[in-house]
Structures are given as C-alpha cells and as structure tokens.
C-alpha cells in the first residue's frame, strides 16, 4: 500500500551549505522519509530531495505532537569522538575522548549533555555510546 510520510511546515528560511542539502522557505510543506538522530532529516519533495535541518521544521498535524523523548536526568554515558567548541551560550565545549552523560536526546540533533557541573547542548553526531550507566 501507499507509504504515508510525515509532513512538516518550514518555520524559517534555510540556505543549503552542501550538495546534498536543499534550500527551505518559511511556510513550505515538506515530507520526511528519514529522520536521522543527528538532526539532519531527508526530505522528499515534488521536484527536489535532500537533507534539511529538523530544527527548521514543525509538525503539520499538531505542533504539540510529542516525538521527542523525555529528559533522562540520570543520563546515558557517551564518549565524544570529535571536539566541538561552543558557539552559543547554551552549548558546551568538549575535547575528543571525553565521557559525558546525555540528559536529553533532542530531535534537532543538539543533545543536552552533562559533564561534571557543566550542562549544555552538543552535536549528537560527535558522540558514540559508551555503554549503559550502572545504577
């Protein structure tokens, strides 16, 4: 039978930054065929297809739709495999090989992580699982 794809509305203009991305215009409707947890979603349009940032989309059917999991305050252990330097105030800077706790896996790919006393957003694509935290 037909595959029903989730439709989203574009909430801000987006200009592509690499070959396999596509431009978005506020108010456009897009159908998503793959939701990568790194925050890049694959859009299948009538005339174009490519990766777009989930952070620029809202669900067409009810913005209250809860696709996102709840925060996990105990945290799940991950290790950074790439360094990232914070560019915004709510982000956290980490070096390669740091073990951190993931508190909230946000759909936009910018997970909330904790290291010691510090908490902030970090790109999920630079993390890999370190195994479950023991209680």
């Amino acid at each position: 039978g037909p595959i029903l794809l989730d439709t989203y509305r574009v909430i801000a203009d987006f200009t592509k930054t690499s070959k396999h991305e596509i431009d978005l215009h506020t108010g456009d409707l897009v159908e998503i065929v793959e939701k990568n947890q790194n925050g890049w979603w694959f859009c299948q349009g009538e005339s174009k297809r490519g990766w777009i940032p989930a952070s620029y989309l809202e669900p067409l059917d009810g913005p209250e739709e809860a696709e996102e999991g709840e925060p996990d305050y105990e945290g799940e252990m991950f290790v950074t495999h790439k360094a990232y330097k914070a560019e915004q105030r709510d982000e956290i800077s980490l070096e390669v090989g740091e073990t951190i706790s993931v508190i909230h896996k946000l759909l936009d790919g910018w997970w909330v992580v904790r290291k010691g006393e510090q908490t902030g957003h970090f790109p999920s694509m630079f993390l890999h699982r370190a195994g479950r935290q023991e209680v």
Binding site: I11, S18, S55, Y56, E58, E68, Y84, F126
Partner: peptide, 22 residues
Amino acid sequence: TVKNPPQNPPPRPPPETRRKRV
C-alpha cells in the same frame, strides 16, 4: 536508501522559532 547525511552539525534552531520547533 538515501545518501549519508551531511558530516557537519545541523544549524541550531533560529532563536525566534525555538518554541515552535520539533
């Protein structure tokens, strides 16, 4: 079935739209 996603982190949500984002 689709090409690999970009290797750079996606942009953060535009500040004025954060409340509406997915």
